[in-house]
Amino acid sequence: MNFSKSTLVPLLGMTVVALFIILAYVSHNVFLDKLLVCGFILLMVLFVKLRAGGTQNKDNSESVNDPL
């Protein structure tokens, strides 16, 4: 399993956000509604970054292999 930094960081970020949401839910946090909205926005940004990182790596590998 070869994980690059562009894949590992967003996955770690998504995991941390999910853990904060679960922790707030279990402890009956007053600000759970605000945390859910912020968490959803962060998860979407991290997901887009994860998707963009995968296509960026493919583009770089193709350009290196193509002779000019």
Rank of each mutant, 00 (worst) to 15 (best):
M1P: 02
M1T: 03
M1A: 05
M1D: 01
N2R: 06
N2H: 08
S4D: 13
S6C: 07
S6H: 12
S6E: 15
T7Y: 03
L8P: 00
V9G: 01
V9T: 05
V9I: 14
P10I: 10
L11H: 04
G13F: 02
G13D: 01
M14I: 10
T15I: 12
V16L: 12
V17H: 03
A18E: 04
A18S: 11
A18N: 08
A18Q: 10
L19K: 02
F20N: 06
F20K: 01
I21H: 02
I21W: 06
I21Y: 04
I22D: 02
I22L: 11
L23F: 14
Y25D: 04
Y25E: 09
V26K: 09
V26M: 07
S27V: 09
N29V: 00
N29R: 12
N29F: 03
F31A: 12
F31R: 14
F31N: 10
L32D: 02
D33C: 00
K34C: 00
K34V: 00
L35D: 02
L35S: 06
L35E: 10
L35R: 09
L35C: 01
L36Y: 07
V37S: 08
V37F: 05
V37T: 10
V37N: 05
C38D: 07
C38L: 14
C38W: 04
F40N: 12
F40C: 11
F40S: 15
L42P: 01
L42R: 03
L43P: 00
L43K: 10
M44C: 08
M44W: 14
V45I: 15
L46V: 02
L46C: 02
F47N: 02
F47T: 07
F47A: 05
F47D: 00
F47E: 01
F47Y: 09
V48N: 04
K49G: 06
L50A: 05
R51T: 01
A52G: 02
A52I: 13
A52T: 12
A52M: 14
G53V: 10
G53R: 13
G53K: 13
G54R: 15
T55H: 06
T55S: 07
T55A: 03
N57D: 07
N57Y: 11
N57C: 04
K58W: 10
D59M: 10
D59G: 00
N60F: 09
N60V: 09
S61R: 14
S61P: 00
S61D: 10
S61H: 11
E62G: 01
E62H: 08
E62P: 00
S63F: 05
S63N: 12
S63T: 13
V64N: 08
V64R: 07
N65C: 06
N65T: 08
N65E: 13
D66L: 15
D66Y: 15
P67Y: 13
P67N: 11
P67F: 13
P67C: 08
P67E: 11
L68E: 11
L68S: 07
